[in-house]
Design a protein around this nucleic acid. Structure first.
Lengths: 143, 143
DNA sequence: CTTAAAACATGACAATTGTCATATTTAAGA
DNA sequence: TCTTAAATATGACAATTGTCATGTTTTAAG
């Protein structure tokens, strides 16, 4: 459903959103440990996210990754789309191109509106929304 | 969500269910073309399905693959579980082991009950059910 | 202006998944 | 019983995805 890379990206963005700020930057290696992802790998993903302004970064001593107010206002679908692309999110269960409501594949009705709902939920949820849930202990960001 | 192999397996099972019978067997290569899957690859998948009695086969001249009445009464989840296993079907969006209703990960509520519903739908649907849909043109099995 | 700490860029390596080919076994029919 | 047509078993190869390391560039601070 989501690739490993997307999952890692989401985890690191959430970690940054909870723990960083403009003047509280975090090193790639200090993100790797708590979210339990290889250091070099998460660095690569963070670079991709930074290039597309989904997270912020500064180089040099005292540098690191962080999230600005603007970063946290982005929808989480932006992260998934950047890493996985649209197809993975919305393609038919049997990967049949012509499959839609009028021309459904045999499995179509089994998934019903779930896929579309899920995509809309991703779209309508911001990083901030998820951070709020975590802060108020309605959800948990684990190791 | 489903692996390519699972999709191919489902397609070939449906094709067999619609077009074959005990004395109307179909060669692997004659399944490959209409469902648009490499011949050698579908052969491998069919062998796996046959080994676990999800399809039937006989060797030698006039042999081939086919589906018995019993085969068609199986639930389609049997196919998915054989090829992909349980984890792929039910694991959390962030692959967090401890994630459940009481201890939800930040994305948990975005998928809601969709995943469980989908799994139940797979479980409660037989090959026969899908064949009926196809026969009555409520769904379409494409190339 | 020099040094060091960090992101950044690049690419090598590994693992998984998907693709394909070949040799073996089985069974039907002449 | 011999030949042939088919599934079956095995494994090699390719592509994708995930993992890791190394060198380069930028920037802050002394």
């Amino acid at each position: 459903m989501l690739s490993k890379s997307s999952k890692y990206a989401l985890k690191s963005v959430l970690y940054l959103a909870v723990h960083s700020s403009e003047n509280q930057r975090i090193l790639a290696k200090d993100i790797a440990k708590p979210i339990n992802v290889p250091k070099a790998y998460i660095a690569k993903i963070l670079q991709e996210l930074a290039k597309h302004h989904l997270v912020s970064s500064t180089r040099g001593p005292n540098g690191g990754f962080y999230m600005t107010k603007e970063n946290k206002e982005r929808s989480i679908i932006d992260i998934v789309l950047l890493i996985d692309g649209e197809y993975r999110l919305t393609s038919c269960l049997l990967s049949i191109e012509e499959c839609d409501e009028d021309n459904p594949c045999p499995l179509h009705k089994l998934i019903g509106s779930a896929k579309i709902n899920f995509r809309e939920n991703l779209q309508n949820t911001t990083i901030n929304d998820l951070v709020r849930d975590i802060r108020e202990e309605r959800s948990f960001l684990p190791l």
